[in-house]
Design a protein around this nucleic acid. Structure first.
Lengths: 220, 220
DNA sequence: TGTACATCAGTGAACGCGCGTTCACTGATGTAC
DNA sequence: TGTACATCAGTGAACGCGCGTTCACTGATGTAC
């Protein structure tokens, strides 16, 4: 029960519905995207179910709108983490990559429902020339990853031909860890343990990406 | 519509329901565990909805039973892949680890619905002293991973104190890749490309686990 | 070998639920003259 | 400045659906004597 409309006209019902959807996803984190229920969103907005169809073609359209907002929040979380780490803030590419990974993971741990919902927007994030969901700095999470990998290439820590593989390895690693610990079989593990393992996992990934590349460069 | 009962008594309704649940998950792979519908399982078994409650407390109990079978199938897929690779069959630990990773990933790609369902049994697989879902060789997927990591320790390729980290890194990596490509935003990628990237990802993981350890051993 | 009877595995019908979606509509808003 | 009217955003009631789950029951099975 977030907000009720004032008069007959709501003002910005569309945004109110998206906000209600995110509320539901957050509250019922373990349920993930299933928690987003169109009728309940209208209830929370203080409006008739039918009213939602003035702004969204169907339930899926509402879910996708919420997913884009959630993905933008993830981008913001990544930026925050990067700016909090001195070396990353100073522009060190390895530290920036660590920030992307830990930002991704901790967003999932802090907001498992949003993480699951954001998953729906990741497909759009990829192929389009202009992904719709970005953070304050105007970059989507995938662009943030690409940016830091690009920086690693520029500083010679990553071989250019390893760029695509590095992106897959990093994304897979942090996504898998996030899925296992935030929503999956490891979700009951004590948070401290998970935090420590997250640090080591990301360190492993950074090492794998940079060191392998060094070998490549010295061997060829 | 798999099998109809013969007479009044079914014979083995419990197993028939589990089989029907797995059928549904397989057919509607993208829907994952949601595809498992109790009423429909009874319909497929040629039986009244009420009959299911003679064998399962509720829908979740049916789902969990199906999940254990699916997890056992994953263990079998991993064994198959290991036995097909000469070096792995010969007992080479690194090749065995590659087999675990690629077996995990390809099970997800081949049977996305079962993969999603099996996820529910992974929690049981972990903590219990005797996980209920195993493959023909009597090992659960997680035990298979532990076995090969143990072999790596035995041959000196993995430092003992890195055992737990290695397990997390490997599981996260393959699980994330599987989730992204089998059910997630990368699910539309051409299968050939995915296969090639899977090979490289798993190679990266094996390297990360073994090489890091070598450094540890030589540096300390 | 035959019958009585307890046990077990299913029947058949119904329940309440909440969902997504559609109907023809009405109240509020703002623009044209 | 005031009124007519088109436009837009919502109403209110209803639909069909399929779900999980529960009721008191009945048909088949197998064991005891």
């Amino acid at each position: 029960v977030s907000e009720a409309k004032v008069g007959y006209h709501h003002g910005d019902l569309r945004q109110a519905l998206v906000r209600a959807a995110l509320e539901m996803a957050r509250e019922r984190g373990a349920q993930g995207a299933q928690a987003v229920v169109l009728r309940e969103a209208t209830r929370r907005a203080g409006v008739t179910p039918r009213a939602a169809y003035r702004h969204f073609a169907d339930r899926e359209a509402l879910l996708r709108a919420a997913a884009q907002v959630a993905l933008g929040e993830m981008a913001r979380a990544i930026e925050n983490r990067q700016s909090q780490h001195p070396a990353a803030a100073a522009g060190d590419p390895a530290a920036l990559l660590t920030g992307v990974g830990l930002g991704y993971i901790h967003f999932a741990l802090d907001e498992p429902g949003w993480f699951d919902v954001a998953f729906f927007a990741m497909a759009d994030m990829l192929n389009t020339a202009s992904p719709p969901a970005r953070g304050p700095a105007g970059r989507s999470p995938y662009e943030q990853l690409q940016d830091v990998l690009q920086a690693l290439v520029a500083t010679g820590l990553l071989a250019p031909e390893r760029f695509a593989d590095a992106a897959v390895t990093c994304w897979s690693g942090v996504h898998g860890f996030a899925a296992l610990t935030a929503l999956g079989p490891l979700r009951e593990l004590p948070r401290e343990l998970v935090n420590a393992q997250a640090e080591r996992l990301v360190a492993d990934l950074v090492d794998a990406v940079t060191r392998r590349s060094t070998n490549y460069r010295s061997a060829k």
